[in-house]
Simulated assay, not measured.
Amino acid sequence: MDELIDILDADGRMTNRTAMKSEAHKNGWFHQTVHIWFYTLDGKVLLQQRGKNKDVYPLLWDVSVAGHIGAGENIITSALREIEEEIGLTIQPDKLQKIGVFKSVHNHSKNLMDYEFHHTFLAPLHLSLNDLRKQESEVENLKLIPMDQFTKELGDISKFKYVPHEISYYNTITKEISKCLATSN
């Protein structure tokens, strides 16, 4: 789905320009996204298998919930909207723990360039997998995987069919989830 988004400079600052998402991807213009990683208190992480019709990385496993931030949209509002759309879950804003903003550059083709700043959050998941409602057009499947298995599989991203984010990004995610788990026990 195409939508109007804010355009950023290479340092993540607003440029006071907007464009359609398709135009930003075609021209390699920086823009904002949200990433929300859900984890369970018994040490599992929720992964989303991207839809088979996605332009990039179809059917690869990825962050629990992700999406573009609309032009002028509040980052938290965007995160809550994406969570509800993609997995049918409504949570309170105070359940989101922001762990950083990560710059990501992927040149998929000459007409498709993802130049993004991921506003990244963690949130505890208190429902079972069966209680989540996946968005059919975006999400092929959902699964919970033990953190130690996830960490081990990140050693061979392509074999386990994960989206090829920077390994430093994945390392930050696993480290921060582990911290949350340590303080919750």
Rank of each mutant, 00 (worst) to 15 (best):
Q92A: 13
E116T: 14
L122D: 12
D114P: 05
M113G: 03
S104G: 05
L112V: 00
Q97W: 07
D114V: 08
N111S: 10
H119E: 13
Q92C: 06
H119W: 08
P93H: 00
P124C: 04
G100T: 00
D94G: 01
K110F: 09
I91D: 01
D94S: 09
H119P: 06
P124A: 10
K95T: 13
V101G: 01
P93T: 00
L96C: 00
N111W: 05
F121N: 06
A123E: 05
D94N: 13
I91E: 00
L122G: 13
H106M: 09
H119R: 05
S104P: 00
L112E: 06
G100E: 01
P124D: 07
L125N: 11
S128A: 14
V105L: 15
L89D: 03
L125F: 08
E116D: 09
H106C: 06
F102S: 02
L96I: 01
V101H: 01
T120G: 09
D114Y: 13
H126P: 04
F117Y: 14
L89W: 03
E116F: 06
F121Y: 15
M113K: 15
E116P: 02
H108T: 09
A123H: 03
A123D: 04
S109Y: 00
G100Q: 04
F121K: 09
N111H: 08
L127P: 02
K98H: 08
G100M: 06
D114H: 12
F102E: 04
S104N: 15
L89E: 03
K110C: 04
M113A: 07
V101K: 04
S109H: 00
S104Y: 11
L122C: 10
S128H: 14
H118K: 15
I91M: 05
I99P: 02
L89H: 01
V101D: 02
P93Q: 02
S104W: 10
F121Q: 09
H126D: 11
F117K: 07
I91L: 02
L96K: 01
F102Y: 12
H126T: 14
K110N: 11
E116K: 07
L96S: 00
K95D: 08
V101C: 07
F102H: 11
F102Q: 04
F121A: 06
S128T: 15
D114I: 11
G100N: 03
Q92V: 06
F102A: 03
K98A: 11
K110W: 10
S109D: 07
L127H: 14
H118C: 10
I91Y: 00
L127F: 14
F121M: 08
K110I: 11
N107S: 10
L112R: 10
S104E: 13
L89Q: 02
M113W: 12
A123N: 08
M113L: 12
Q97I: 13
S128G: 15
K95E: 14
H106R: 12
E116C: 08
H106Y: 08
H119D: 14
F121R: 11
N107K: 15
H106W: 07
K95S: 13
H119V: 03
K98R: 12
T90H: 13
H118I: 08
H106E: 12
S128F: 09
K98I: 09
L112N: 09
V105K: 15
I99D: 04
Y115L: 10
L112A: 05
E116G: 04
L89M: 09
L127G: 06
L125A: 11
T90A: 12
K103I: 03
T90R: 15
L96P: 00
S104V: 07
H119I: 05
S128V: 07
V101L: 03
N111I: 05
